[in-house]
């Protein structure tokens, strides 16, 4: 796997809500080679606090301009510093990292389920497949209306867009996993579908059990604390079933972040 550690210039940094930002970085080598589901590690400061790079999944690439885009929410020191950057500032960007989604079975219908700020890899996937004339059904859940992004684009590309918000300010009120489950039970969805999902772990765990119940193949993109993103530190372990009723640890950064959900031993 070819990896690049490049200085990426910030081309735009747009504030989408109080604490969510849309960032475009010029990084031609990485932009050219990204696959949906992959991520980059960004160093937000030359100082030692915060010390480590932060992982960000890729929202999409604009390869003719050499740009990669990410969406991030301010959750700590690193993302706070990133949110205060300006156009023209330069960041260390390492990527493309990890194993992205596998689209080898194109005969199936694709159902995508995104929760909150975890949706970017799915957006990248939709963008990536836009010329394939594939009917994609996208379930998109967020806390509130303001945290649903790219609704127009999604409506245009997806065969069907189902929205939910926790406060009911857009789409159905409730959790996206409940609506997905209900639609399955009602027989609205094709049984010959493959499901792709990203979002918080508790959501993925629920989606996973729904898909298992309905015998649907599911790929999930996991998030985890990482120090390096390349497999050096072994910090981002996730429990995986193996034969003989035993388990092993795989690394989210290198073996994932996309996994077939049926091999994951969900905890918590």
């Amino acid at each position: 796997m070819v990896l690049y550690d490049k200085k990426g210039e910030i081309r735009y940094l747009n504030k989408l809500t109080d604490d969510i930002y849309h960032l475009g970085i010029k990084c031609p080598e990485i932009s050219k080679r990204c696959h949906p589901g992959q991520f980059v590690m960004i160093r937000v400061s030359e100082n030692y606090d915060p010390l480590l790079r932060r992982p960000f999944s890729i929202l999409r690439t604009i390869s003719e301009e050499g740009i990669i885009e990410i969406i991030f929410k301010v959750v700590g020191k690193g993302t706070k510093i990133l949110s205060e950057k300006r156009r023209g500032d330069v960041l260390d960007v390492l990527g493309p990292l990890g194993r992205g989604f596998n689209f080898s079975d194109r005969s199936k219908n694709y159902i995508l389920i995104g929760g909150g700020i975890g949706f970017p890899p799915l957006f990248f996937m939709i963008d990536f497949l836009k010329n394939e004339k594939k009917d994609i059904i996208f379930y998109y859940g967020a806390k509130r209306k303001e945290e649903i992004f790219f609704k127009m684009e999604l409506q245009k590309i997806c065969a069907k867009l189902v929205l939910t918000t926790e406060d009911g300010s857009s789409g159905e009120k409730g959790l996206i996993s409940d609506v997905f489950s209900k639609d399955l039970d009602a027989g609205i969805l094709e049984s010959d579908s493959e499901v792709f999902s990203c979002g918080p772990n508790p959501m993925l765990k629920v989606i996973s059990s729904i898909c298992e119940r309905c015998d649907l193949k599911l790929q999930v993109s996991l998030e985890n604390m990482m120090a390096c993103g390349t497999g050096l530190c072994q910090g981002c372990a996730v429990k995986i079933k193996n034969s003989k009723d035993d388990f092993e640890y795989k690394l989210v950064c290198k073996d994932g972040p996309v996994f077939d959900s049926n091999i994951i031993l969900w905890e918590g």
Partner: peptide, 20 residues
């Protein structure tokens, strides 16, 4: 060796903890 259960790492001021 499988290694330790996660979380295995945490960032601290100018450093990090690991328990791989």
């Amino acid at each position: 060796r499988k290694g330790n259960p996660p979380p295995r790492i945490a960032e601290t001021t100018a450093g990090m903890l690991n328990s791989i």
